[in-house]
């Protein structure tokens, strides 16, 4: 994870999608993903319709295609797995480009690719239009256990601090002639990692003291209360409702 400088998934902007409250967007994402994953894999046109919906959101959010494509790279490992399926699955074979592959495997691969890609694009769109911090507020609003939200918000705050500390330790090592060439050098690196862990642990204790000193009693106070208007809920609902219509069509047609 490349924590630290803001975060590169987010693309600052002031589009209608950016302005929606985070918890509305989160629920919209969940609704959309549920609709896509529960669509039968043989109804090919439905996935095309879902993709069109996402393109619509991307246009509305003014997220360029290149940006989306680059961030979709996280999906690659799954694509690799999906490409294997047609060759390893059992069942009747079909001919594709002169190769004999399993029909079930091919459908399975399509299933993973289509649903996975739609989910990743939807997730990337959410991250591109919502700051991480706002996302945490949204999760808090949606009753995510407060302890988990706190842990994540501390990761957000201290990821950069700890990375910087790690960088300083590396510079200190190398300034004294250390070069990590092969396995024999791992003990030094491992000791640094241990030292970093202890430093972070001690920082955690100092942060806790500072929190107690300002009246912390175990729960984070709600500081930025984001309320969604009916219109905002309706706007956010547009995507999952449209997906639901497609889903219903896919089941009945």
């Amino acid at each position: 994870m490349s924590a630290g400088h803001g975060h590169r998934l987010y693309r600052p902007g002031d589009s209608p999608v950016h302005r929606l409250p985070p918890h509305c967007k989160l629920l919209a994402l969940v609704g959309f993903v549920l609709a896509t994953v529960s669509t039968p894999r043989e109804v090919y046109w439905a996935f095309g319709a879902y993709a069109v919906l996402l393109v619509g959101v991307a246009v509305l959010a003014r997220v360029p295609a290149g940006f989306l494509l680059r961030r979709m790279l996280v999906e690659l490992p799954f694509v690799g797995f999906a490409l294997l399926l047609p060759f390893v699955a059992n069942g009747p074979d079909v001919q594709v480009l002169g190769l004999s592959v399993s029909r079930d495997g091919l459908l399975g691969a399509w299933n993973i690719m289509a649903k996975g890609t739609l989910g990743v694009v939807a997730g990337v769109l959410l991250a591109a239009t919502t700051e991480l911090r706002a996302l945490l507020l949204g999760l808090q609003k949606l009753r995510m256990p407060p302890l988990l939200v706190q842990i994540m918000s501390f990761m957000l705050r201290y990821g950069g601090v700890i990375t910087a500390e790690m960088g300083r330790m590396r510079i200190a090592r190398e300034s004294r002639g250390f070069v990590a060439r092969d396995l024999r050098q791992t003990p030094a690196v491992a000791k640094s990692a241990g030292a970093l862990f202890i430093r972070s642990y001690e920082r955690g204790e100092r942060v806790h003291l500072a929190m107690l000193s300002r009246g912390y009693t175990g729960t984070m106070p709600v500081i930025l209360d984001t309320r969604a208007t009916g219109a905002q809920w309706a706007a956010a609902a547009a995507l999952p409702v449209a997906a639901l219509v497609v889903w219903a069509g896919a089941l009945t047609l």
Partner: peptide, 28 residues
């Protein structure tokens, strides 16, 4: 009693300045 600790990175633990300054009074 308002204690300002030595390392501001220990004292400022919220994602933005606004939320951090609000943390104490919100607890009140």
């Amino acid at each position: 009693v308002g204690i300002v600790f030595q390392d501001p990175d220990d004292q400022l633990f919220m994602p933005t300045v606004r939320e951090d300054v609000a943390f104490g009074p919100a607890n009140l």
